[in-house]
């Protein structure tokens, strides 16, 4: 029974999959346009773009990490703890090891070592969470709730909750480099990560395995996937991304502290969901996540320009937008389902 391909159906199905991206794009353009119209002299100026590019990478990178874990059907609530712990280890090392008043070329190897320490910390933090989830079968939401407490606790414990400042000047100098006098290093790092992870998800074997595992862990096992290894590697990637975010936060604040970025956790989950990552696993794209980050950033930067409007309206709009998108998606999918039922009966 070799059937001929009806072009109408696949086209519709593809549009259905990318509907979310399209909606996000429309929303982005809308927010951008609104802000430009309301604040033509401030919003979307070069200086404003520059400041936006400094702000979003730290939470954006963590949002990508959380998105990856959500695609495999889990969640990583430990990203902020991992970021701060990594930064604190790196800061402690720099403060302790770099001699006072050393010339830049002597400091450079220490910086490289500090970055390596941070990345290794992130990797280990992620691996531990992955181990708890895959080997000990603790639900991801609880395991990472625990690791978040644990990592933040260690970070508070070894610093007595105080900020670790007095970092070598070179660190923040490098960290705040701007390429072509315009693109901050953190923005360039974000772009590299988004492209790299996006490619990994859509084109690599590991990415496909993550989607499949997130859809049905049992079937993945029967198809010969090594579930434990995929989960551990996913949380390791999330951990490394968190430590990169930690290093960026450290460069921005010129210090490391156990409670930096505390509200980022739920905000990142929100970004992931709004960006189209299925909270039940198996679906979602980095493009969507990036669009969601940009929408949030435009909103927040734009609102900053109204002196009489608190930046907390961002939370209101953000929460409101999420609920509206959900309601809209729901009503849309009810209709799509009805249509699909009709088609399948045909």
């Amino acid at each position: 029974m070799q059937s001929t391909v009806k072009p109408a159906i696949p086209a519709k199905a593809l549009a259905g999959r990318d509907q979310n991206l399209l909606r996000l794009l429309v929303m982005l353009v809308f927010v951008f346009g609104l802000m430009t119209v309301l604040r033509p002299n401030e919003f979307a100026t070069l200086a404003d773009f520059n400041s936006m590019m400094r702000q979003f990478p730290e939470y954006g990178i963590m949002a990508i990490g959380i998105s990856l874990t959500m695609i495999t059907g889990g969640i990583d609530l430990g990203v902020v703890g991992t970021a701060n712990l990594s930064a604190i280890f790196a800061a402690k090392f720099l403060i302790g090891a770099v001699p006072q008043g050393a010339p830049p070329e002597q400091v450079l190897p220490y910086l490289a070592a500090a970055v390596a320490i941070a990345l290794a910390t992130g990797l280990l933090c992620g691996a531990f969470a992955g181990l708890l989830i895959s080997r000990f079968r603790i639900p991801a939401i609880l395991a990472t709730l625990g690791t978040q407490q644990l990592y933040t606790g260690i970070a508070i414990g070894i610093t007595n909750g105080r900020p670790q400042s007095r970092l070598p000047l070179l660190y923040s100098t490098i960290g705040n480099t701007e390429f072509f006098g315009f693109f901050p290093l953190s923005f360039v790092i974000y772009c590299a990560i988004a492209v790299g992870i996006g490619l990994m998800l859509s084109r690599s074997r590991f990415g496909t395995c993550m989607y499949m595992l997130g859809t049905n862990a049992k079937a993945a096992r029967f198809a010969g996937l090594n579930n434990a290894s995929i989960i551990i590697r996913t949380y390791m990637v999330s951990g490394i991304l968190s430590s990169v975010a930690g290093l960026i936060m450290m460069a921005r604040a010129n210090s490391a502290k156990a409670d930096y970025g505390a509200p980022y956790t739920l905000q990142c989950v929100l970004i992931a969901v709004l960006g189209g990552i299925d909270p039940n696993g198996g679906f979602g794209k980095i493009t969507g996540v990036t669009l969601a980050i940009l929408i949030l950033q435009f909103l927040s930067s734009g609102l900053n320009m109204f002196n009489n409007i608190s930046n907390f309206y961002r939370d209101v709009i953000w929460g409101g937008v999420l609920i509206l998108v959900l309601v809209f998606n729901r009503l849309f999918s009810i209709r799509a389902e009805r249509r699909a039922v009709r088609r399948s009966m045909a």
Binding site: Y211, M212, T215, N216, K218, A219, A220, F222, G282
Partner: peptide, 9 residues
Amino acid sequence: LTEGLFLPQ
């Protein structure tokens, strides 16, 4: 349904 296939994929 539960062991063989990834239904929504």
